[in-house]
Design a protein around this nucleic acid. Structure first.
Lengths: 215, 215
DNA sequence: AAATGTGAATTATTTCACAGCC
DNA sequence: GGCTGTGAAATAATTCACATTT
C-alpha cells in the first residue's frame, strides 16, 4: 500500500489553487467541470490538472468531467484542510503584525495562537487578542499550545537561532520570511519567502529590458 | 553579440543570494572565495554557483576562485542594482502598510513613491511620507512619477482590474499578493506571492506526516 | 594542487497524444 | 463525442565529471 508515485512539489501548491476555484464554482452552483475548463479558469492546462489529480487517485468521469463538490471534498482531505493547525509568529515587526492582523488564516484552518518578540517594549502588549511573549518562552508555549507550525519574521541575523529554538521545541514546519536559508533537520519542513528578493527579481527584468548586461 | 544561452528563471533569484553573501564577505574583509565556499554559505552547491555565473560570463580565476568585490560589482550590474526604480503600492491594508513601512527597499534600489487605495477613508492620509491616493489617480501618478514597478495588495476580486489599470498606465512589472493569477500582456512581468498558499502548503506536509490521504 | 567553466548525464517537470470509458 | 487517465516524448533544471587554466 501507499504506492504514491513521486510528484513535483509544485503539485501541492496547484491543488490549493484548484481547491479555491472549486469553492468559487460551488458558490456559483456549478455542479460539474472538466479539467480543461478548471485549468482555464486558473491559467493552467487541462493536462496539468489531470496529472496533478492523478497522483492521488481517479476522481473524474470520462465524458463529463469532475463533480465540483466531490472533488472539493477530496482535495480538502488531501490538503489537510479538514484539520486545524496551531500557528506561532516569531517577530512582531511590520510584517509580523500584518500577519497577526490578517484574518484570513482561520479560514484556511490555521489558528494563530502565540506571538513572540525579543523587544522588551513589545512583550506583554496585546495584538489581535494575542499577548506578545518573550522569545525565551517559546519552548514552553509551543508545548502548552500544541503549536506545529511557525512563522519567522525576525531579522536575518536572528533567524537561525530562532529556528533552532523552534525545532528544539517540536515545531514541525516553518514559514521563513527572513532573507537567509535556514538549516534544520530533515523532518522539519521549511518554506522560504523572501519579499525583497521577489521585488528585486522584478527589478532585474526591468534592468534587462532596458538593456543591461548579458554574456 | 548577445549570445545569451537559455537560463533557468531560478538563476536570477540565486544571483541575488550570492550578491547578498558577497556583501557580507566584503564587510568581513574576505577578498577571495571559491564557488564551493560561497555555495556552502548559502546552502547551494559550488557547481550551481559556477553554472549560474556561467550564463553571464567568466569571472573566476582557476585555482584561486573569485574576487569578492569584483564579483559583487559584476552582479550589481547584472541585477540592475546600480539603478533606482520607482515603485507604487496599490492596496493599503495590513500587508500594504507593512510593505510601505518596510524601510529595506531603498537599500535595494527600490523607491516607493506612491500608494493607492479604494477606501475613501484612507485617501489623503499620510503613511511613511507618502499620501494615499485614489485608485482613479493611478494612471496620472504612474506617468508623473515614472513608476515602472507596482505591488498589488488588494483583495483578490479587485486585483485584475487594478492590474489592467496599471498595465494601461505603462507599469512594466507587478508583484502580486492577491490570491489569483493575473492576465497581463507578455511584455509585462508578473510575480505572484500568495502568502496563504505558502502557509497552506506547509499544512499539507503536516497533514501528510500525520497520515492523511495518498493514492 | 586547487579551482574554474562547461559539455554530457541525470533528474525533475511539463506537455503530448491517445487508448479507453461514459 | 467528449473527456479522463496515463505512458511516452519533450523540455527544463540540476548535478556529474573532467579537461583546462593559473
Amino acid at each position: 500500500m501507499n504506492n504514491k508515485k513521486k510528484m513535483p512539489t509544485s503539485t501541492i501548491s496547484r491543488l490549493f489553487i484548484y481547491f479555491r476555484e472549486l469553492d468559487k464554482l460551488e458558490k456559483l452552483s456549478i455542479r460539474t467541470i472538466s479539467s480543461s475548463e478548471l485549468g482555464e479558469r486558473v491559467n493552467l492546462s487541462g493536462t496539468q490538472v489531470r496529472k496533478d489529480l492523478g497522483y492521488f487517485g481517479q476522481f473524474g468521469v470520462s465524458g463529463s468531467g469532475y463533480d465540483v463538490s466531490e472533488l472539493k471534498e477530496v482535495l480538502k482531505k488531501i490538503l489537510g484542510k479538514d484539520k486545524v493547525w496551531n500557528v506561532a509568529i516569531v517577530g512582531v515587526g511590520h510584517l509580523g503584525s500584518a500577519l497577526l492582523a490578517y484574518s484570513g488564516f482561520d479560514r484556511h484552518g490555521l489558528n494563530i495562537v502565540a506571538a513572540f518578540d525579543a523587544d522588551p517594549k513589545k512583550i506583554g502588549k496585546n495584538f489581535a487578542n494575542i499577548t506578545i511573549r518573550s522569545i525565551e518562552d517559546i519552548k514552553q508555549e509551543v508545548k502548552k499550545k500544541k503549536i506545529s507550525l511557525s512563522i519567522i519574521t525576525v531579522p536575518g541575523n536572528r533567524a537561525q537561532e530562532v529556528a533552532d529554538v523552534l525545532v528544539g521545541s517540536g515545531v514541525e514546519s516553518i514559514l521563513n520570511f527572513a532573507p537567509i536559508s535556514l538549516n534544520v533537520p530533515d523532518n522539519v519542513k521549511v518554506k522560504e519567502v523572501d519579499l525583497s528578493r521577489e521585488l528585486e527579481t522584478l527589478s532585474y527584468f526591468l534592468a534587462d529590458k532596458n538593456g543591461n548586461n548579458k554574456k
